[in-house]
């Protein structure tokens, strides 16, 4: 265990085939399980996609979705706090230039905004972002 492990956030990655309203089907399961969605994004593949969701109760969410036949995986991501003002993202980018980011998405969480990133090497990523003076959100904020 490293003390940095608290920055690792469990994101749900859900395989989504090319059928209408797959997102609706996922949202329905989460609603019925009284799971709160904190942020999400959809990635398009060739004829299928991956729905990425941050929820307040990832283990229960995974179990419910799996029971409904979805293919679900946990992926560890990092949450970077940014200023909810013009230039908020720009202020981060300089500190992030040395990390290899696979994907990212953002959402507002007043008074801040949050940038979620999936990095190639998460341990190194955490170290490098912290060293750059960025503020990472603790996973207790999520789960």
């Amino acid at each position: 265990m490293s003390e940095n492990d608290k920055y690792r956030i469990k994101q749900l990655s859900i395989f989504s085939e090319n059928r209408p309203n797959r997102l609706g089907a996922v949202a329905k399961v989460l609603k019925e399980g009284k799971i709160n969605i904190l942020g999400f994004s959809i990635a398009e593949g060739a004829g299928y996609g991956v729905i990425r969701v941050l929820v307040d109760n990832p283990v229960t969410a995974r179990d419910l979705l799996t029971k409904e036949g979805f293919v679900v995986k946990f992926t560890e991501v990092l949450a970077i706090q940014m200023q909810d003002t013009p230039g908020g993202l720009f202020d981060l980018t300089d500190q992030m230039k040395d990390i290899n980011i696979e994907y990212g998405y953002g959402y507002r969480s007043p008074p801040y905004a949050v940038l979620i990133v999936r990095v190639e090497d998460i341990e190194k990523g955490i170290e490098s972002l912290l060293a750059g003076g960025l503020r990472l959100l603790d996973n207790v904020n999520f789960h």
């Binding site: 990655s13 593949g45 004829g47 996609g49 293919v71 995986k73």
Partner: peptide
């Protein structure tokens, strides 16, 4: 797709396809 073969990485999925 087998559940254990699913990956969050779209590039890998595209390569498999």
């Amino acid at each position: 797709l087998k559940p254990e073969a699913f990956t969050d990485n779209i590039i890998e999925l595209n390569a498999l396809r």
